[in-house]
């Protein structure tokens, strides 16, 4: 089935994007990435520790001939910080892709819509392919698309909460109106969450904690891969309508008649 995901000029067979954070080890991360079938992974950008001799680094565990790296601006609370972080990431990784995160609040890690819009505008003008992390607000999503973002990435639930899609109706509205890919990012906790999200018709999922914080991350990565595929196929297949009352699955004709004794 030719069901390619297109983001900007890139094409992907996998609709699952995964993070690199919170794994028990880089070896487990690498195995989980392989099991997930993901073709794009996120990384964060941080100061180096000046007194720390460099050993093996994260990038040693990511095969860039197989995986596209999507740098994020996690940790930024202002548009200015996010723009500089994105520019540094572009210089470091030689990519113009950026997952734009401008956070409004440390407890919810919800994106600050105003700062996100401001940073998105500046980054689009600077030639970036911007994938903005956003709340499940159809208006902000529309505004980000109008600015020129390559996708919109509404959250299912707060980062790392594992609550699954909290407002499927908002996600459906966002998907109905968007002309760019809709990637549900943040809050997916288990395989059924992923399948439910994909059945809403979204184009892809981005998750990190759902896999990394599972008791068995590699096994969960396998599960998430299948869940994303299953949810996508179910969406394309077109589910049956829900009914309040029964509709028999076996014929009502030619029933055997048993005489009462």
């Amino acid at each position: 089935m030719n069901d390619v995901l297109r983001i900007g000029t890139l094409e992907f067979a996998s609709r699952l994007i995964v993070g690199t954070g919170k794994y028990p080890s880089l070896e487990v991360m690498q195995a989980a990435h392989a099991a997930s079938g993901a073709q794009m992974v996120t990384v964060a950008i941080r100061r180096i520790a000046l007194d720390d001799p460099s050993g093996k680094t994260l990038l040693d565990y990511i095969d860039r001939s197989r995986l596209t790296i999507l740098p994020n601006t996690a940790g930024c609370y202002t548009a200015r910080d996010a723009v500089l972080t994105a520019q540094l990431a572009r210089e470091l990784l030689q990519t113009d892709l950026v997952k734009l995160e401008v956070i409004g609040d440390a407890q919810t890690l919800h994106p600050d819509p105003r700062a996100t819009l401001e940073a998105a505008e500046r980054l689009v003008a600077d030639g970036f392919t911007v994938l903005p992390y956003v709340g499940d607000d159809p208006i902000v999503c529309r505004q980000l698309e109008e600015i020129g973002c390559a996708a919109v990435m509404p959250l299912a639930a707060p980062i790392g909460s594992g609550l699954g899609v909290c407002n499927p109706y908002s996600i459906r509205i966002i998907k109905e109106r968007a002309k760019v890919p809709v990637i549900v990012d943040a809050g997916v906790g288990t395989a059924s969450d992923a399948a439910i999200a994909m059945e809403l018709g979204v184009d892809a999922l981005l998750m990190n904690t759902g896999i990394a914080a599972a008791r068995n991350p590699v096994l969960m990565a396998h599960a998430m891969r299948r869940a994303v595929e299953a949810g996508r196929m179910a969406y394309l297949a077109g589910r049956m309508a829900k009914r309040l009352y029964a509709s028999a699955s076996s014929p009502m004709e030619n029933l055997i008649a048993v005489e009462e004794a």
């Binding site: 690199t20 941080r46 100061r47 990190n208």
Partner: peptide, 29 residues
């Protein structure tokens, strides 16, 4: 607050009061 291109590392002279950030990619979601 401005990126210094790698190709200019050998020529870019630091001045008094400059604020320099040296960053790397780390694990994150």
């Amino acid at each position: 607050d401005a990126v210094v291109r790698r190709s200019t590392f050998g020529e870019y002279r630091i001045a008094h009061g400059d604020r320099i950030e040296v960053i790397q990619a780390v694990a994150g979601g």
